[in-house]
Design a protein around this nucleic acid. Structure first.
Ligand code: ZN
Ligand code: ZN
Ligand code: ZN
Ligand code: ZN
Lengths: 156, 156
DNA sequence: AAATAAATGTTATAATATAACATAACATAG
DNA sequence: CTATGTTATGTTATATTATAACATTTATTT
């Protein structure tokens, strides 16, 4: 699904933006936080906490679950990653701080995730909530299915 | 949020519909399945698997996690309940078999869940997917926030 | 340099879910 | 009705995901 022509720049952009955001907010972008964000951005697939832990152990023998979960919490709180509730997995945010209504397309075939933030859709969701006299605070929208590329491949 | 004037009829309706659906599909609505569906429908709040297990043990001393998860799977597969991924919890479906795009409002205050299925919104979501050349197969839309009643109460 | 705060290390355990195999209950063909 | 296959449930064990609680280290401020 994701045909990023140059993934190295996806990665370096993400790290650069994270660094900037942390500076602006007066937060410390420590090496642990950087390494884990880097792992999450190693591809466009969702990362599982314990897979991150395994990788982290190569670098940091004493890494334990709280090492990972605390760092994930930091990254989540600061909008640098998202949690995909339907997968119990984590993905880098492709536009941190721009807004807080991010929707996801998840291809079950190639496992790639795409963020598909969309004002119209956000509006429709807020309208639905409003019709129900409901004040939305946090929206989870995760769409599982098949991307065009994978559908095409299957037809060959 | 949910002001069902007569919850006994919510419950009995749900069980009756489940029974009918199982008959129509040639499935067995066993007492275990009935008891667990009944527990889930005991209120309009989400039920956790291990809470169900605890309650079940009062009736069936030998109940174990697979007892519950297998039954939840049966109920999920047949559209009688939904899983709320953002809560790891389960809720009865208020209109089984009508369609398969159910959205949820979850009040963080009173803990109640409301299904808010809506054709317009389903259309908007499908349109967004389609704009991304994506074939949706399963949609998770869970909106956490505060319901009117709880907002009003807070203002008193 | 001392005091404070933030981050990380460490140990233990909680909460959620499934694998694998055994037995029981039910359906239906002979 | 009874043998046979199928579906449901029982049972044991373990996998996966996540957090609590307290200790130590590192960074920042006074
Ligand atoms: Zn990329
Ligand atoms: Zn794909
Ligand atoms: Zn009711
Ligand atoms: Zn409420």
């Amino acid at each position: 699904m994701y045909s990023c022509s140059d993934h190295k720049s996806c990665l370096s952009d993400a790290l650069h933006v994270a660094d900037k955001i942390c500076q602006k907010k007066g937060l410390r972008f420590t090496s642990l936080r950087k390494i884990i964000l880097e792992m999450i951005w190693s591809n466009h697939e969702p990362s599982k906490a314990y897979d991150i832990l395994d990788k982290l152990k190569d670098v940091n023998l004493s890494a334990k679950p709280p090492t990972v979960y605390r760092t994930l919490d930091f990254l989540l709180e600061n909008g640098l990653i998202h949690k995909l509730n339907s997968l119990n997995a984590y993905i880098g945010c492709s536009h941190p701080l721009e807004h807080n209504e991010c929707f996801f397309l998840f291809c079950q075939e190639c496992k790639e995730i795409k963020e598909c933030c969309n004002k119209e859709l956000a509006k429709a969701i807020n309208q639905t909530a409003s019709n129900n006299k409901f004040q939305p605070m946090n929206i989870t929208l995760e769409i599982q299915g098949e991307c065009q590329e994978c559908t095409d491949k299957a037809r060959l």
